[in-house]
Amino acid sequence: MARESSPTLQRLVNWLKSWEGLLLGLLIVVLIINSSAVPAYLSVGNQVNLFILYIERIIIALMMTFVIINGEIDLSVASLMGLAAGTMARLYEVGVPSGLAVAAALGAGLVCGAFNGFWVAFVGLPSLVVTLAGLITYRGLVWVLVEDRSISNLPGWLNDLGQKPLVGPFPLALILFFVLAVVAFIVLQYSGFGRYVYVIGINRDVARYSGVDVRRVKMILFTASGFIAALSGVLYAARLGAMRSSTAEGFELDIITMVLLGGVSIFGGSGSLRGVLLSILIILNLRNGMGLAYLSANLQTGVIGLLLILSVLVPNLARSAQARLARRRLALRTMQPAEEV
């Protein structure tokens, strides 16, 4: 009966709410500190610049949210960014028309994503292992393609798209992000596919026993993840105007941190894009603030690593503290009658 609603679940719901509340609070604190240090910090121009610095990772984080809610993980995205950039740059270098080179790069992302998906969905290997192997393999392929050179001869139109504003102050990547964010939000919260993503993440068996094609959903997710990673890789190369074999190395750390800090459970089944967007804003502004405080980019990465751990550790500690408190309260309550006896 609904009246007997389990309080633990109620608490969990409240907790989820308060996690996003916590993020909001954190964001406000970061913003206040930063804007007190720098005038016009909150101006559109400044925030756009912030976004642009991490826009490729942010776009991938949108997709990664789906993957993690589904109960999987994709560690290979940063390598795929590199592979797409390398494919595009190398093909253009040897004289393939620029449009075709870009298409081939995106195609490579699709194929590699589908390759990951095949092993996870159809063979049933853990995605952690498959995409770890993917991380190594795809990065290895970039080395094969580009070796230890740097390619800066990219199509001119691509450089323009990557570096110049397209509409108002917004370059293509940012506009793409806005569009993808809206699409992702609608798909995850309101579409049948989004429902399947959650259901599989909550309980794969229930999904299978209800006639949901679990393998198809996972296959689509990994393929899409590969495609989005490739797209971001091309955008990244376009923005930088060059690429090397180590392009985008280690970006998976930023991306996964954005998703997990946003309150998405690493075990799947819960979380929302709202939280992820909040955590993206926090990470961007935090990084910027650290930059303002003259912390090196390297140290910033260390802090992101710490943030990743804390985003899982803090809820864990809070939960166990809550449980301990509840136990103590119960013990107190039950002690009294025992004394009466």
Binding site: I256, I266, G302, I309, V312, L313
Partner: peptide, 23 residues
């Protein structure tokens, strides 16, 4: 003791230890 999945912890500390090295 913190019950954080090892993949998360060591992905994080991989970055942390490396950044300590650089610094």
């Amino acid at each position: 003791y913190g019950r954080v999945p090892s993949i998360i912890v060591t992905l994080g500390t991989m970055a942390i230890y490396r950044s300590l090295l650089v610094e």
